[in-house]
Computed example of a mutant assay.
Amino acid sequence: MNKFSLLLGSALLILASASSAAKFYKWVDDNGVTHYGANPPQGVVSTEVNTRANASSDQNKALESLQEKRDQATKEREQAEQAAEEARREKTDPEAVQQERCEQYRKNLDILINKPTVRQKNPETGEMEVIDQDKREEILEKTRKALEQCEAS
């Protein structure tokens, strides 16, 4: 029974691929109208049309571009949602938000001072990159100023 099922399945696949590879033709009539059909008319120059499911390189590029645009739109929407949530939290409980930020500044300062290598996410590529000493000093200065604001409030 298994051999029969395997043979039947193979035969169906062969028939399906043969039918999907049916020939279609393209021709232009005397009025300049383009026609497509399985059988071209007699005495008219026609060309065979490729009906395979393979996408052309132009189609692949267009699809990739469309997907990149969709991904970018999704990323922007998520960022807008995060910003809206942060703004809502800022309005409803500003003290808690400020405390969370100050705690994050303390953690960042500890990392900047005690870790020999510090990485930061590149906003353009989204990849983690090791920061150089100049960038480290710049971030240290900003973090210390932010912590001074925390201590003042």
Rank of each mutant, 00 (worst) to 15 (best):
L8T: 02
S10H: 03
A11M: 14
I14K: 03
I14S: 02
I14R: 03
L15H: 02
L15P: 02
A16V: 01
S17A: 10
S17W: 00
A18G: 03
A18I: 00
K23S: 14
F24C: 04
V28M: 11
D29N: 07
N31V: 02
G32E: 01
T34A: 11
P41K: 06
V44T: 10
T47S: 05
T47G: 10
E48T: 12
V49I: 13
N50A: 00
T51V: 12
R52N: 14
R52G: 15
A53S: 12
N54G: 12
A55D: 05
A55V: 15
S56G: 14
D58F: 15
N60E: 10
N60W: 04
E64K: 12
S65V: 02
Q67I: 05
Q67H: 08
K69H: 12
Q72T: 14
A73W: 02
A73G: 09
K75Y: 10
R77K: 13
E78N: 11
E81G: 00
E85T: 07
E85Q: 13
K91D: 04
T92N: 14
D93K: 00
V97T: 07
Q98L: 11
C102T: 04
C102G: 07
E103R: 12
Q104V: 12
R106E: 12
L109T: 08
L109K: 07
N114H: 12
P116C: 06
P116R: 08
P116Y: 08
P116H: 00
R119W: 01
K121R: 13
N122Q: 10
N122F: 09
N122I: 15
E124T: 10
G126M: 10
M128E: 15
E129A: 13
D132A: 01
D132K: 05
D134S: 15
K135W: 05
R136L: 09
I139K: 15
R144P: 00
K145Q: 08
A146Q: 09
L147V: 04
E148A: 11
